[in-house]
Design a protein around this nucleic acid. Structure first.
Lengths: 126, 126
DNA sequence: CGCATGATTCGATTATACTAGAAAGACGAA
DNA sequence: TTCGTCTTTCTAGTATAATCGAATCATGCG
């Protein structure tokens, strides 16, 4: 049944949106994207955002549970990185819903498409 | 202070993600996008998704509060439509974080860019 | 007005999420 | 092994969200 899968997909993306739907977690994600692909150790995130360690750990868990983060250990440090595959899927889902399945948002009004279509910028002095 | 604004923007997008972060609401949004630009009356959404009227009303409120929905009255009916401006901003935020501010996701791995770059499909018989 | 219909608000319950101090686990170095 | 550091789990309190029946509001019609 094709519908069952599509149903599960909606739940999956809803979970991802929910994980991003809290300011502390969205900030974490932004930080990790800016630090990509190296990522950051938990302590560095804690220090930059001023979040208590236990609170941060739960937020990282939430993001990891939905597949938005990956983690690898290096000695006593845990390196967190954004999972770009998931983010890509999420963007494509959003684009599909808004611009493909419907014409709600015209494709050429998305930054991505505008950039792809635009002639390369000329660098200007000063 | 530039930081304050960026801070507020993060909160705004987090709120939008949170609103989409529940399966019933994401389904509502999908439905309204598919029905764009006409939208749907509340009763039609209720019937299609099988949600009790009062529950649905709260979900619609949540989506409207963050600016993802618009509503207009026509007689006793309330027509709900997706707010494409907000969705566009949200997509562009996501793209900026993933592909511009960082190179986490290569721009050409986004459906949008691929579509814009690809040569037009040739229509095939049968 | 009196009534029917569409939709929201009220009221209440239940469930889930957020937060964070304290304790415990994991690892490396001496 | 003992210690120190990094991080997570435990525990618990508070807050917010989800749900839905009943009551209410809004509108149009006869």
């Amino acid at each position: 049944m094709r519908h069952a899968r599509s149903n599960g997909q909606v739940i999956r993306y809803a979970d991802m949106f929910a994980a991003m739907g809290a300011a502390p977690r969205l900030r974490i994600l932004r930080l990790l994207l800016a630090a990509h692909p190296r990522g950051l150790v938990a302590g560095a995130i804690r220090q930059r955002l001023g979040i208590p360690a236990s609170t941060l750990s739960h937020h990282l868990d939430t993001l990891r549970d939905v597949g938005l983060l990956r983690v690898r250990r290096e000695g006593t440090f845990l390196w967190y990185t954004a999972n770009t595959d998931s983010l890509q899927q999420l963007m494509n889902f959003l684009y599909a819903e808004c611009c493909t399945r419907s014409q709600a948002v015209a494709p050429d009004r998305c930054v991505l498409v505008r950039q792809a279509l635009a002639p390369p910028m000329r660098k200007v002095n000063s």
